[in-house]
């Protein structure tokens, strides 16, 4: 799967978790850009991404994830 396809799929998940259909993600988007990206929503987000791509992040992966670009790189490395 190409990274832009992953981004689109991740964007759909973000829109669902944050209940915002107009949300547009870039690789630079981070928790600082989305006020609703709090601790509970982060957990839900990670869980939904893992489920959608049938992957499991390692704890050190999660610890190094700073923005959507990092998330997409990690997903791509596991597919």
């Amino acid at each position: 799967m190409e990274k832009n396809e992953i981004l689109k799929k991740v964007e759909t998940i973000f829109r669902s978790v944050f209940d915002n259909n107009s949300l547009v993600l870039t690789t630079e988007t981070s928790a600082l850009d989305i006020p609703e990206w709090n601790s509970l929503n982060h957990m839900i987000l990670i869980s939904e991404v893992e489920s959608a791509f049938s992957i499991r992040f390692k704890l050190r992966d999660l610890n190094m994830m700073r923005n959507v670009g990092d998330m997409i790189d990690l997903i791509a490395s596991k597919l």
């Binding site: 928790a31 601790s39 509970l40 982060h42 957990m43 990670i46 704890l59």
Partner: peptide, 11 residues
């Protein structure tokens, strides 16, 4: 810290 905490919890 909210993201660090939720990464740990979520894991």
């Amino acid at each position: 810290s909210s993201i660090i905490k939720s990464s740990l919890l979520g894991y």
